[in-house]
């Protein structure tokens, strides 16, 4: 019992994110019965997975103390470049692999700029985003657009295995893998060390530059893959398709309990953040809120979520423990409190 308590206490930040998500879901389910239906939950899982893909790399980058602003343009790149390659006669599966590889290379360049050229992450990824945007604009302006998204991407985004959408299963796979890598592997431990204090990490023999470059590379690849799936779901591609995901990918990581300064956070927290944001954005229209009201509530909930995950959960935890400790004391068993 004690162990369970300390296990939960160590993860109160993540737990509070899931609690926030659950509260929002229950509100939705009470307000309208269709909200908890299988089809709606499936829909939300698919939407959340897009955020989840973009936010996986973002989680690693933020834990290492960086930030990736190329997300919206790489999302767009994934779909547009895939359709372009497929229209050029390339089979879909190698085309997806190639597009994701290019995304990884763009991430790699980000990492090299941040570590070797010592350019601030915000600036480096902003500039790379600008270059990708310029490329996409050039593709749109110089060539005909409206290429078909290949069928493989469409199937990936809309097929189901039993009751579960394929993307959700893929997302779960990534989440399990990322969770294991972050908490069990040497890479994970080094990643947290780099984010917490890169000088100390470097002095204790961690290849700081390599770790950072890897995070940006993974981010580039995962975001581009997210773009491929998103394009498959939407069925067409356009330049602004990734627009919302800059905001949501960062917000999901932060609501999931990561510090923007690096050194803390987990992908399971980010999953909670992605689910919370998705439940919230499908919940708000039910209350007949206009677009404007939706944005206001969205912002307020994000601030509350971040507050809960960073400082608020500690405050609530203290209140909760005080509530538990008091009857304990009155029964005369002071041992548990002092321990």
């Amino acid at each position: 019992m004690k162990q369970v308590g300390s296990w939960i206490r160590g993860r109160l930040g993540v737990a509070s994110s899931y609690a926030l998500c659950a509260v929002l879901f229950v509100i939705g389910a009470i307000h309208s019965p269709g909200f908890a239906s299988a089809s709606n939950i499936r829909q939300m899982l698919v939407f959340a997975s897009f955020v989840g893909f973009a936010a996986l790399g973002q989680t690693l980058v933020i834990i290492a103390g960086g930030l990736d602003l190329t997300v919206p343009w790489l999302m767009a790149f994934g779909g547009i470049e895939l359709s372009r390659l497929a229209a050029g006669g390339m089979p879909a599966v190698p085309a997806i692999a190639l597009v994701v590889a290019i995304g990884a290379i763009i991430g790699l360049i980000n990492g090299v700029g941040v570590t070797w050229l010592r350019i601030a992450p915000i600036v480096m990824t902003l500039a790379m985003g600008g270059l990708v945007q310029a490329f996409l604009l050039a593709v749109g302006e110089l060539q005909s657009t409206g290429d078909q998204v290949p069928a493989v991407a469409v199937h990936l985004a809309s097929n189901r295995v039993g009751p579960f959408p394929v993307v959700a299963i893929v997302w779960l796979g990534f989440a399990v893998a990322a969770g294991i890598v972050l908490s069990r592997s040497a890479f994970g431990r080094r990643l947290y060390a780099v984010g917490a204090n890169d000088t100390v990490a470097w002095l204790s023999g961690v290849n700081v530059a390599l770790i950072r470059i890897l995070t940006y590379t993974i981010s580039g690849a995962m975001t581009t893959f997210g773009g491929v799936v998103l394009a498959g779901y939407v069925g067409t591609t356009y330049l602004d398709i990734g627009g919302p995901y800059l905001f949501t990918s960062i917000a999901a990581v932060i609501i999931g309990g990561a510090s923007i300064l690096g050194g803390s956070g987990s992908y399971w927290g980010t999953v909670a953040g992605a689910l919370t944001l998705t439940v919230l954005s499908s919940l708000l229209p039910l209350f007949q809120l206009s677009n404007a009201g939706l944005e206001i509530v969205y912002g307020v909930v994000i601030l509350i979520g971040v507050w809960l995950a960073s400082t608020g959960h500690r405050l609530l935890g203290r209140l909760w423990r005080r509530g538990l400790a008091l009857p304990d004391n009155m029964q005369g068993g002071a041992g548990d409190v002092s321990a």
Partner: peptide, 17 residues
Amino acid sequence: FIATLGTWTIYNGIALT
């Protein structure tokens, strides 16, 4: 970064109102 990430959408919503 986070405070203004939140107020960014709040202010956008106010403008739309």
